[in-house]
Amino acid sequence: MTGQLLPALMAILLGILAGVLLFVPFVAIQYRRQGRLTVTQTVVWAGFLVYGLALWTYTLLPLPVPEEIRCAPKQLRPLQFIDDVLGYPIGSIGEILRNPAIMQVALNVLLFFPLGFFLRFTLRRGVVATTAIGFVISLLIETTQLTGVWGIYPCAYRIFDVDDLLANTAGALLGGLCSLALRPWLARRDATVLPGKPTPITVWRRLLGMLCDAMVVWLTSALAGVISNAWQLYVLAIPATDLNQSVTSAVTVAVPLVLTAALTLATGRSAGDLAVLICWQSRIRPRLLARLLRYLCGVGGWQLLVAFASPLDWVFAAAGIVALLATTDRGGLPGIVARMRPVDSRAPSHDPL
């Protein structure tokens, strides 16, 4: 049971990691392609990501220990599964359902069946494209197995079966055909997509921008810490036990602080604002002062509290959310403190900071 659950757990864990790394670019792309990001879109894309990783983990993992590898044979005869099916009793429905050859084909079909739906939802591909993509992905998986992960192993550690290729492609085809039922819903959805037109600044949009800001700070901090430790280990040749953690801690705080400050002071917008296409209007002059206030009333104020190890960082974050909910124009703390107003950056005249 543990061996069967391991690929699923790995797919979920890797999906979470990949989702965190790709979240901000994903938000930015969706807003530029469709003018918005809904919960449905997020769930579908997250499912697609986990599904894609599950294909990899279930078909290629676990990798064998090189010393224990046993070379697997090849099955190059198309439709060999028919003879395999007939090699077991099929005189009743129960025997058919328990037939291991039928179960093997059915599982291979089901494995690629979701591909049609995901490609239809996310990339808007038709039946022909879905089938072709399913074939290519299946061929890549089978070839990877046949070549021992492209030469890492001396021979194939799993059976290359041409019938698996046929069943996987059939699954993608069936998924694509069933996805045709989604066309009316997709047509209604596409009718509301306005990628080039401004849309209202909602609570969800502002919260999404704030989440993107936090993600950028966290990822930048983590990357800065890794680079700092790597510099000490490989450039300064400091033993791992003697690494200066105070330097690394200072770097993980200073680097994201400087980068986010530079971005906001240069553009008047945080990384989250840029992702969700928000800019700010303000009558405060000089403009640099308005941008500084935007920074201090947003991610910058939170970062400064974190930098000085203040327990008020969580209070500041909570106050930002409460202020966002309390302001009718969704200006939040920048709106209350500096009388700023968020507007869609696609508006024809918005006089940004």
Results as ranks from 00 to 15, higher is better:
Thr130Leu: 07
Phe112Ile: 01
Leu63Cys: 08
Ile29Ser: 15
Glu67Pro: 02
Thr42Asn: 08
Phe81Asn: 01
Val105Phe: 11
Gly19Asn: 10
Leu21Cys: 11
Phe81Met: 00
Gln75Ala: 12
Phe113Lys: 03
Val50Ser: 05
Thr42Pro: 01
Pro25Asp: 13
Val109Ser: 04
Arg32Met: 05
Asn108Tyr: 05
Ile16Trp: 00
Trp45Pro: 07
Pro100Ser: 09
Ala8Pro: 10
Leu79Met: 15
Ile102Arg: 09
Ala54Gln: 12
Phe113Trp: 11
Ala132Asp: 02
Ile90Ala: 03
Gly126Tyr: 04
Val109Glu: 04
Leu79Tyr: 06
Asp84Phe: 08
Ala46Lys: 06
Ile133Ser: 03
Ser92Phe: 14
Leu79Thr: 11
Met103Trp: 09
Arg36Thr: 15
Arg70Gln: 15
Thr59Gln: 15
Ile82Cys: 00
Phe117Ile: 05
Ala106His: 11
Arg77Cys: 07
Leu119Lys: 01
Leu111Tyr: 09
Ile29Trp: 09
Leu17Arg: 08
Pro66Asp: 12
Leu63Arg: 12
Leu107Asn: 12
Phe121Thr: 01
Arg32Thr: 03
Ile16Ser: 10
Gln104Val: 11
Cys71Val: 05
Tyr58Phe: 13
Leu79Val: 06
Ala132Asn: 05
Gly126Asp: 09
Val44Gly: 00
Arg124Met: 08
Thr40Val: 15
Val109Thr: 12
Arg33Ala: 09
Val24Phe: 01
Leu61Pro: 03
Thr38Met: 05
Gln104Pro: 03
Pro114Phe: 13
Val85Phe: 03
Phe23Gln: 01
Thr131Tyr: 00
Pro100Thr: 04
Leu14Gln: 10
Val44Gln: 03
Tyr88His: 07
Pro73His: 04
Arg120Pro: 06
Ile96Phe: 04
Arg124Glu: 15
